[in-house]
Simulated scan of single mutants.
Amino acid sequence: MVIDGVEVPEDGADHVDHVGELLQRVAAGDDTAFARLYDMMSSRVFGLVLRVLVDRSQSEEVLQEVFLEIWQSASKFAPNRGQGRSWVLTMAHRRAVDRVRSSQASADRDVRVGFRDLEAPRDDVAESVEMRIEGRRVAEAVAALPEAQREAITLAYYGGYSQSEIATLLGSPLGTIKTRMRDGLSRLRTLMGVTT
């Protein structure tokens, strides 16, 4: 099966982390590997960033920042701790969230010094603070999940992959991926104190 231009083994075949291999070559300074990595991952990264930021021009800037960071820090990728795709998408999500926080901080500063309407509805400010706190809680809860569950959930929610695509990417049976996601989401609800 071919995903993002890369031959990916079917279920049961030996699974190879193509993105991870490219990251290791990028860490060694291989610019051809970097170009292949960009071709393979840029549309996924851009889609993820655009979902977080909504603004297309800011998303394009963040896309470039993410790949600059990949070029500079590919040596930090640890293949024994997860898939390359998850590492790249997590980095992209973190960058996008940082951009949102930076924009909000800038807007807050402008309000404090009088550049914007001082009569901003307090509900908007309270809602923004609440969303940031909740986002932090979710990130901490996801980080507390076992690696297999965290990886499946990260690929689904940050990467936009279907359960079938995740099964193919990870070389695991579809039922296993469904179980990891179900158990991971159940554990997230418990960690977040959500009752059903």
Rank of each mutant, 00 (worst) to 15 (best):
G20P: 07
G20I: 04
L22R: 07
L22W: 08
Q24F: 01
Q24G: 09
A27W: 06
G29V: 12
D31F: 02
A33H: 06
A33C: 08
F34L: 15
F34R: 12
F34I: 01
A35S: 12
R36T: 14
R36V: 13
R36H: 13
L37D: 01
L37G: 03
S42Y: 02
S43R: 14
R44Q: 10
V45N: 00
V45T: 03
V45C: 01
F46T: 02
G47F: 08
G47A: 09
V49S: 02
L50H: 11
L50G: 00
R51M: 06
R51W: 02
R51C: 01
V52W: 00
V52L: 01
L53R: 02
L53N: 04
L53Q: 03
V54D: 10
V54N: 06
D55T: 05
S57R: 12
S57C: 03
Q58Y: 04
Q58W: 03
S59A: 15
E60F: 04
E60S: 07
V62G: 05
L63W: 03
Q64T: 12
F67G: 06
L68P: 00
I70T: 04
W71R: 15
W71C: 06
Q72T: 07
Q72L: 12
Q72H: 11
Q72E: 10
S73R: 15
S73G: 13
K76E: 12
K76S: 15
F77P: 03
A78Y: 08
A78L: 10
A78K: 15
P79G: 12
N80V: 10
N80G: 11
N80R: 14
N80A: 15
R81V: 02
R81F: 06
Q83R: 11
Q83W: 01
G84S: 03
G84N: 05
R85D: 07
S86D: 07
S86H: 01
W87S: 05
V88A: 05
V88L: 03
V88Y: 06
L89A: 04
L89G: 01
L89W: 08
A92W: 02
A92R: 03
A92D: 03
H93L: 07
H93Q: 10
R94M: 09
A96L: 04
V97N: 01
R99L: 00
V100Q: 09
R101P: 00
R101T: 06
S103N: 10
Q104V: 13
A105H: 12
A105E: 14
A107W: 00
D108E: 14
D108R: 14
D108W: 09
R109C: 04
D110Q: 09
D110E: 10
R112F: 00
R112A: 09
V113H: 05
V113L: 00
G114Y: 04
G114L: 05
G114D: 05
D117C: 12
A120D: 08
R122F: 08
D123L: 11
D124G: 01
V125N: 02
S128D: 14
S128K: 13
V129D: 14
V129S: 13
M131C: 00
R132L: 09
R132N: 08
R132M: 10
I133E: 15
I133F: 14
E134Y: 14
G135F: 07
G135M: 07
R136Q: 13
R136F: 11
R136N: 10
V138F: 08
